[in-house]
Design a protein around this nucleic acid. Structure first.
Lengths: 254, 254
DNA sequence: CGGTAATTTGACGCTAGTCAATTCATGTGG
DNA sequence: CCACATGAATTGACTAGCGTCAAATTACCG
């Protein structure tokens, strides 16, 4: 079995922290986390009232497992997570990685059960929103529904882009693209964009990009030889962003 | 240049047929075309009133081009189409294929301009819905918005599935999966599910699946040798659906 | 500090891409 | 209606890139 086994096997998240609302007010991620155009509307108030901050959970803890009844949505506050499905061959398919301000669970929106599992990649904190509460709010507030609609459309486009872009790309191109994507996401949440910490394993990256783990190692090595990055274990420094871009973009130059 | 040049260069669709509403009532695709839970609601009436059937257009005609201001959404009534983007290398990326009852243009929903081009693959008829009209209706009717929401979620999941599924798949697996997907879609609109007509070129299929056109030929040949299908030009007969399934599913059997 | 898992590195084979030639469709005009 | 022209599809030969297997090295956790 090539896939890693979770360290912890708990099936659900413990009660979480104190149930005080308006915690978003004191969260430094607030601006990046909540939908853009609802910073001070009534809807923002209502939504923030539903968000329950949790306590830090250890690496390997599951937010939920594929097949469990859908209870809640989550917002990553610190740390990171990966979502994955077990396919018909018993093989793990990594769907994506999640960082602070990312919403988790929307992919299961149209289902009664979670369609994927989500496990923490490091010690992390997540905020929780009850599914029934959120759905009720969405039914009553059209502008909030529109916000969600927008966000989903964005994910849809990103997903589409990833599919066609990476279909034609070589290993080096995919890895360069992956690093740039991470960098962009880190920048968006106020982290250093040139210092990346890869909390996920090479196997996870490989699975996500449709490559073998060994190929990830070699690709990182080649990018390093090219002077674009410096790799030291799970830490990657982006030395020449332009070089990385050039590599990522040169797919299928017919 | 490996990509095909459109036969016709018209930049927009001619006026279309007579502007009589309620044409959906006499359309045999109605049940499959409109959202499930709105067959006889007020919203259904309103929506149907916005749908304008067009006249048949020749192969190679564009519904719209990437970058044009977004005017309308389209529903395929007969024939087929492909949507594609030109990427930064001037290369064509095929995003998908469209058959009767498919909605076209939703991917540009959040933009003022079309983010892709759509060209007919054969002589086809499409129905048109004005963008402003539809958006006004969506704003006023929450249940309709929910329907759209649902439909988008479905596409999102399909897109996701396509990405992870095909990432690990071999050429034969991808082609088998593609044929089964077409078969399913044909069945959903009442066509024979075992007799497929591939209106798109091998190059388009290859581009869509992230392969070379020659590989499509060879993969089809191998599937034929395996007794799963019979290929004759653009016509493909599915002889053993089970065999095709087995081939499509056996990706990454660790 | 020891044991385990993760990562790197090397060797090798196979799959799919590329280039080129040929066959096959399709559509056009005489 | 047929001959021809054009592009699509197939087939073959060769090559490059990635997967696989195995071994060595490093990082991590108790």
């Amino acid at each position: 079995m090539a896939t890693e086994m979770p360290l912890h096997q708990r099936t659900s998240l413990p009660p979480g922290g104190a149930r005080r609302s308006a915690t978003c007010d004191i969260c430094r991620l607030r601006a990046a986390c909540l939908p853009d155009h609802m910073h001070d509307s009534d809807a923002a108030r209502s939504l923030m009232g539903l968000i329950v901050p949790g306590t830090p959970q250890p690496r390997g803890a599951f937010l939920y497992r594929q097949g469990e009844p859908r209870r809640a949505f989550y917002l990553v506050r610190s740390g990171s997570a990966k979502s994955f499905q077990i396919n018909e061959n018993g093989h793990e398919d990594v769907m994506g990685f999640h960082f602070p301000t990312d919403m988790i669970g929307a992919a299961s929106l149209e289902h009664r059960q979670y369609t994927e599992s989500v496990v923490l990649l490091e010690r992390s904190t997540v905020c929780e929103v009850s599914a029934t509460d959120l759905e009720a709010l969405l039914r009553s507030d059209a502008s909030l529904l529109h916000s969600f609609f927008s966000k989903l459309m964005q994910s849809f486009e990103a997903e589409r882009h990833a599919r066609v872009r990476l279909h034609h790309a070589s290993a080096d191109e995919r890895v360069a693209d992956f690093l740039l994507e991470l960098s962009d996401r880190f920048r968006a949440i106020g982290r250093a964009e040139q210092s990346l910490f890869l909390s996920m394993s090479r196997y996870d990256i490989a699975n996500y990009l449709g490559l073998a783990a060994e190929t990830i190692s070699r690709a990182l090595g080649r990018l390093q030889d090219a002077g674009a990055i410096a790799v030291k274990g799970k830490s990657v420094e982006i030395l020449m962003r332009s070089a990385l871009h050039k590599i990522a973009e040169r797919s299928a130059s017919a």
